[in-house]
Design a protein around this nucleic acid. Structure first.
Lengths: 209, 209, 209, 209
DNA sequence: GATGAATGAGCGTTCATTCAT
DNA sequence: CATGAATGAACGCTCATTCAT
């Protein structure tokens, strides 16, 4: 259930026929390509259309303006990410919460690390949009899933699950972002991941019992 | 020792005379104003110059292009921040490292929270720049200070101070950023701060002895 | 006998089957709706087609381009108007020409005042077309009818009926248009009508004997 | 005292220095040229700028958008026209009103007939603008001048000067416009002028005494 | 026939940057 | 040195028109 995007950003038509689907996918892929090669500043509507092999006009059939395109791209990724998080949470039902936290870290990390350059590009693209609503909605959705898991987890006794959840997610999401911002390499990033796991574990142990 | 900015971004002259200093300050202040009221998208050279009460031409005497202006603004803030961190580190010489970590969190938090809207605007402005070098340099400078404090701290026995340092700083900086991104209110943010302190303490205890 | 429209504006097919007739009528009605609600600037082919409940493609079956559509719409109204004028002239056969002039004014006035907003919209739409031919043809047709009536009218002795006719029609048509342009209200417009009648009568009396 | 144009149409700066004045004049002249040669449909900002020998950017320094340009052009002509009418009225102070009416006709006629193609182009250009306010203001200004003259004129005894004035001006302005719309030649137009004078005289005689 | 997705030329407009004054 | 009018490349976007289905 993605949020209602500010109406100026709402896609014009949801592609149901297969041909449209292909077109929209091509546009998304082209947007990514351009974002990777030229950055947000070099992302022009004609450039994207060209790379996608469609005309500008076609692009505008699906996206009412450039922002909407980037918005939709981010939405798509956040939705996928949210689904992955939810899947992880489902899998972790009833497991000790330190394990759950680790699994969450692994999931989030994997998603963000899979295409690092893209992740970086999206992080940047978000800054130029009115994406508060989008980000909020994503946060809310994911928080719901993670909070639940923390609550249902067998051995959780902390007074305020919501608070712990906010802390953990903020730390996890923030660390990943900062790691990207610093331009760390893969090895450093995985070092960070282990460290973060240890940190969360230590905290949960200290707080949870 | 600020980093060498990518040549295209280097300010044209370092304002040594007092008149220049005033001008540059006015320009910076105007930039902030515009950034706050119109966001990065509404930041135009003419707009800034107007607000600063100087002509565009004059502005170009000090900054070779628009990017350089935003770059310099960020540099200024990062430099201040770095100095504050260094001061904190100096003050924490020889104190137990849990205290040092807390002090670091307090310092960073205070700096970022002082003018939240500005912080947010700067976070966004950075995304549109080639600021990797800037960020790297800032990170290096600050890491140097914090690493030192962790090493010289009386009771630190961890095998790899650098690694711990990276983890801690990444977590701290990242959490603050994510907190801003989520649009959390002041109360939530301070809850987060306490949580983060607890987390770091727990981690250090678990790892450090 | 409508004039030959400039070739590029000629409708593609005269709708003889009843189905076509319905379609064309729907298109005309939609055009009017759009003209009234969005003005000439908001008149787009897709917009009209949508409102008419047909596809753009279908619309292009009947009108080779957008201009042709507006052209045809004006033609239709002018034809109706011409017919009304001719009817009036027929009815006025053999009557004193002051009466005839008054009847002409009434007819023209009624036609233009019936749907004032539409009249206004059409006046405007004409300005963007190459409608000289259309207007000429309408003028010629109507002039023929009115000139005849002035000639056959029992007591007309003016040396040059054509000249008088041109004057009268120009004054009448022009006044109506100007009244619309000034945005006069209904009451002022009818005051104007009486005044115009008086004026024509005075003139005919002064000139005709 | 021209009306406050809808703010979107207000010129950006009134050219006071001589250089600006020249530039703006060149732009106006270019606009006229293009209007004459390509019509309103062919009037593009780049086209006008090119013809004026300036860059688009410069044009936009003076006019915030294309409409404003055309608006200003019309305003300029209407202002001139209003001044001429006022001058005529001033000259006709205390003269018999039939003479005044004739003088008014002559003035208006001369102004509109001086550059017939331009007159035609402006008539058309007005249709695409939100010019109601402009036209109203012009009408009000001119009506004021003409009403006064009709009142102060020695022998005017009509019950309602305003009404007579409205009739006369509507008839005069409307007739000129219609004459242009019909595409009449110079000779016909001057025949019309005499006829119109006779008509007004006859009306005034019939009504005024 | 009817459809409507696709096209793409072309428009209005902005704004970083320059340079004559 | 300061000014700010002038520049013009480049962009986002529209919409009349076509044509494969």
């Amino acid at each position: 259930m993605p949020p209602q995007p500010p109406k100026a950003l709402k896609p014009r038509k949801t592609p149901s026929q297969s041909r449209s689907r292909v077109t929209v996918d091509a546009i998304f892929e082209a947007t990514i390509q351009v974002l990777l090669s030229q950055g947000m500043a070099g992302l022009t509507t004609t450039g994207v259309a060209e790379r996608a092999g469609v005309s500008v006009g076609t692009m505008y059939q699906y996206f009412p303006n450039k922002q909407a395109l980037v918005y939709a791209l981010n939405e798509r990724f956040l939705t996928t990410l949210a689904e992955q998080v939810e899947a992880t949470c489902a899998r972790m039902q009833g497991r000790p919460f330190e394990e759950a936290a680790e699994a969450l870290i692994d999931t989030y990390w994997a998603a963000k690390t899979e295409r690092p350059e893209l992740t970086r590009a999206l992080y940047r693209s978000v800054a130029e949009l009115e994406t508060d609503a989008l980000l909020h909605a994503f946060a809310a959705r994911v928080d719901k899933a993670t909070t639940e898991i923390f609550c249902q987890t067998s051995d959780f006794r902390s007074p305020d699950a919501g608070e712990v959840n906010l802390l953990l997610t903020t730390v996890i999401y923030g660390s990943v972002r900062n790691a990207f911002e610093r331009g760390l390499g893969q090895e450093e990033i995985s070092g960070l991941k282990s460290g973060l796991k240890a940190m969360c574990r230590a905290y949960l142990v200290a707080v949870g019992k």
